[in-house]
Design a protein around this nucleic acid. Structure first.
Lengths: 329, 329
DNA sequence: CTGAAAGCGCTAACAC
DNA sequence: GTGTTAGCGCTTTCAG
C-alpha cells in the first residue's frame, strides 16, 4: 500500500502508467464509452496506485455540467438563510454533493424578485438548483434550460419536480389523533400565507375538522416561536372554548406552549398542543411536544440526487410524516 | 435595461462587444493586472449589457484554485454530519461561498483516520478546507501544501489558523455569575474527552472554581441531551450538595434540566443550571436556560473567508461569548 | 476497441 | 496598456 501519492495526479499520469491513451483512461474512469476488460483493469489499478482524484473543474468545463448545486431559498428577507431548517437542507445537500465531487452554494430568492432563479441558471458553474419554499412566480420564472437539473422542496410545477413531506397526510394524522382524544375545538396556526406548500396542510386540517363537524379556526403563523406565543393569546381571547391547537412547525408549537403557560392554561388538561416537524427540542420541552415527523435530510438528499444525476423523476415525491405522541396532546 | 441575456455568454463575447482582447477583458473583470480607464468602462458596460456571468469551472481550472471549499468534521461516527451545529457551519460557509462563485462540500473526518484530511488536499477541485473539531493528529496530518487555504473551527496549529468562540472567557463568565449568585458546589459537564478545543472551557472552569475555594467536580459529556439527563442523575447521586451545574452545550444543559426535574430537584431553587451556545431552544425551555453565546455563523464565515481569500490570518481568532441571563441560574 | 486531436472558458506569461 | 499565445485537465468526436 505504499502509494506514491504525488500532488496533483492527472488523468495523463494514469494513462501513461496504464499504457493507454488519456481518452481510454477517461472512458474507463467515467464509465462511459467502450473499453476492453484488459484496458479497464490496467487503468483501474494505475489510478488506484497513483491515488488519482479527478479534477472536477476540468470535468465540469469539458462537459458543461457545472461544479456546484445552488440551494435557493424563497423568503421575505435574507434572514431565511439562517433558518435551522434551511441549514439542515444545505448540510444534507453538501453531503451528497461531496460524494459526487461538487459543492453547494446558498442563495436567497426574494419574494418580490422571483426571477432571481433565472439568474442562477445563467451561471454556467451551477450544475443544478434545489429551490426551497418557492412561490408560484418563482416556479414560473424557471427557464426551460433548467429542465432536469432543478428540483423543489416545496410545491413543484410541470418543469420542476417536487420533493416534500406529505404535510397533508401528516396534518390529517395529527387532527385525527386530536379528535380521537375527544378534542372538538381545534385551532390551527398556519404557515406564512405566501408559502404555497403550507396550504396543503391547511386544506387537510379543514377537511378533517369539517368532517368531524367541528369549526374551522385559523390563525396565521410564520414558523417562529415568537409568533406562536402571540398566537396563543390571540386564540384564547377570540375562542375561549378552544381545546386544542395544532401549529405548523414545532418552533411555533413550542411558542404556543409558552404562551398558554403565561395565560395559566393547562396543557394538555385544558388545551392540547401539537406541532409539525419533530425537531430535536420537541422531546425536551415540558410537556413533551406531540408532533409529526419531517424527514428533512432524506428529502433534501432526494432532491439533490435527482438534480445531480439528472434523473427524470416523478413530478411529485411525498415523504411520509409519522405521528409522535408525547405529553402535550 | 432590455438585456439580451443570451444563454452562456463567455468572456469572448464580452471582449468582442467591448472591442478589446479577451485578455484585457479578463484583467478588467478579475480586477487583476493593468487596464486603461477607457477599456475598463467599455468592458464593464459590455459585461453588464450581455449579463455576463464568469464560468467558475474555467477560472478554477486556469488558476488551479479549486471550485469548492470542503467542510471536514471530526467525530467518532459519520453521524456528526447531521449535527445541528455542523449544519449551521455549512450553511454559513455556503453563503459566503456563493458570493465568490464556489461551493461547499461536507466530509467526515474519522477520529481513527486523521489523515483523511490529506486525501482532501489531493483533490484539485477543493480550493480550501475548513476543519471543524479537529484533533491534534488531524492537524498534524495537514500537508504543507494546504498552507493558507485551510482554517480550523476548534484548535489550530502553526499551519492551521483557528477561528473559535472564546469558550474560556465564556465559561469564566458563567462560573463568575454562578459564584456571584452564591453557588459554591458547581459541577461541570464537559465535552467529549477527545475534543481538544473543549478543554479550554474545562481549564477556565477549574481556575475559576479553585480561585473561589470551591471543589472541582467534572462529569464527562458529549453535547447530547441524553447525556445531560443521565449526567444529572449521576451528579446528584455522587455529590448531593451540588448547587449548580454548568454544561458545555445547551442541548446537554437542557438534558440536565430534564434529568433534575425527574429527580424532583427544583431549578434554580435547589440547583442552578447554565449552558453554553445560546441555541434557539434555550429561551423556550422551562425555566429559560441561562447560557452564553456562540456566534457560530460569524465564526464559520470568518474561517471560510480566510480560506477563500487566502488571507494570511492571525493564528488565533477568538470570538467573544456573552452571558445571557434567564431563569435557570 | 483505441488513439489523435480539438476544444470547454478562462488566466498568465510574454512580447509589443 | 494591450494582444498573442499557451495551456489548466478533462471529455468527445472522429478516424483507424
Amino acid at each position: 500500500m505504499a502509494r506514491t501519492v504525488r500532488h496533483g495526479v492527472t488523468l495523463e499520469d494514469v494513462a501513461r502508467l496504464a499504457h493507454v491513451s488519456s481518452a481510454t483512461a477517461s472512458r474507463v474512469l467515467s464509465g462511459r464509452g467502450p473499453a476492453s476488460p484488459d484496458a479497464r483493469s490496467r487503468v483501474a489499478s494505475a489510478a488506484g496506485e497513483l491515488g488519482y482524484v479527478p479534477n472536477g473543474a476540468a470535468r465540469a468545463l469539458a462537459t458543461r455540467s457545472g461544479t456546484r448545486v445552488a440551494v435557493a431559498v424563497g423568503g421575505r428577507s435574507p434572514h431565511v438563510l439562517h433558518d435551522p431548517y434551511v441549514a439542515r437542507v444545505v448540510a444534507a445537500t453538501a453531503e451528497v454533493a461531496a460524494a459526487r465531487g461538487v459543492g453547494v452554494s446558498l442563495h436567497w430568492l426574494p419574494l418580490h424578485a422571483p426571477d432571481e432563479v433565472a439568474r442562477l441558471a445563467e451561471d454556467r458553474s451551477i450544475g443544478g438548483v434545489v429551490v426551497v419554499n418557492p412561490t408560484r412566480p418563482v416556479l414560473d420564472a424557471v427557464p426551460r434550460s433548467m429542465r432536469g437539473r432543478i428540483a423543489s422542496i416545496g410545491v413543484g410545477s410541470r418543469d420542476v419536480p417536487s420533493f416534500d413531506v406529505d404535510n397533508g397526510a401528516g396534518t390529517a394524522g395529527v387532527v385525527a389523533h386530536l379528535l380521537a382524544r375527544g378534542r372538538r375545538m381545534i385551532t390551527m396556526v398556519t404557515g406564512p400565507a405566501w408559502l404555497p406548500c403550507a396550504q396543503r396542510a391547511v386544506t387537510a386540517y379543514r377537511r378533517a375538522v369539517e368532517a368531524a363537524g367541528s369549526p374551522v379556526k385559523l390563525v396565521p403563523g410564520d414558523f417562529t416561536a415568537a409568533r406562536g406565543e402571540a398566537a396563543a393569546a390571540e386564540i384564547m381571547a377570540r375562542w375561549p372554548d378552544t381545546d386544542a391547537v395544532f401549529a405548523l412547525g414545532d418552533l411555533t408549537a413550542l411558542g404556543v406552549l409558552g404562551g398558554l403557560r403565561l395565560l395559566g392554561v393547562d396543557v394538555p388538561g385544558d388545551v392540547a398542543v401539537a406541532g409539525f416537524d419533530d425537531i430535536a427540542f420537541a422531546s425536551l420541552s415540558r410537556p413533551g411536544l406531540t408532533t409529526t415527523t419531517n424527514p428533512v435530510e432524506r428529502i433534501a438528499a432526494g432532491a439533490a440526487i435527482s438534480v445531480l444525476d439528472r434523473r427524470p423523476s416523478t413530478p411529485l415525491t411525498f415523504y411520509p410524516s409519522a405521528l409522535v405522541l408525547r405529553d402535550s396532546a
